[in-house]
């Protein structure tokens, strides 16, 4: 149940962020060019981020690719978190806009804590210990309906 909730939340976040970039392409492109990043990196991210986010959502949605989806979402969220943290700590010469979908209405602080929360959720699911199946969890052929 917990796994399904986390996966659903991550799918929702990546579908939302991916499509909001596609729906507001010019805005997203402008915002990326105004991040304190080299232009070649901004251009690369403009074209790679939306498909990456949507592929991550797709990966999370299907059972066979959920682990790849979780790894991808953890890495993406970790990078976003480190970036927002660096902005807040004034690692860059200026503070750019914190624009992107619903997060456009939030400042960098809120953005950061949301990212931290989502990264922790992804990590919780990705690194959870795989417990050996107990005797009771193995269906007994006696009790199983024939």
């Amino acid at each position: 149940m917990r796994r399904r909730l986390i996966l659903s939340l991550l799918v929702l976040v990546f579908v939302y962020t991916g499509f909001s970039k596609l729906f507001g392409w010019d805005y997203f492109s402008d915002a990326m060019h105004n991040q304190p990043l080299p232009h070649w990196l901004s251009n690369t991210l403009i074209w790679s981020l939306p498909p990456l986010e949507l592929c991550t959502a797709l990966g999370l949605a299907f059972t066979g690719t959920q682990r790849i989806g979780l790894i991808s979402s953890f890495i993406l969220l970790l990078i976003f978190t480190i970036y927002t943290g660096a902005i807040m700590l004034h690692f860059f010469p200026r503070v750019p806009c914190s624009c992107g979908g619903i997060f456009r209405k939030l400042g960098w602080h809120a953005h950061f804590w949301i990212n931290v929360g989502l990264t922790l959720l992804a990590a919780l699911e990705l690194f959870k210990p795989v417990l050996p199946r107990t005797r009771s969890s193995i269906p007994s052929p006696i009790n199983s309906p024939s």
């Binding site: 659903s8 799918v11 929702l12 976040v13 990546f14 579908v15 939302y16 962020t17 991916g18 499509f19 909001s20 596609l22 729906f23 507001g24 805005y27 959502a57 949605a61 624009c99 979908g101 619903i102 456009r104």
Partner: peptide
């Protein structure tokens, strides 16, 4: 439903 909600939210919040 989750995918549709995500797309709808993105559409509703487009710049």
């Amino acid at each position: 439903a989750i995918v549709l909600v995500g797309i709808s939210l993105a559409w509703a919040n487009k710049p």
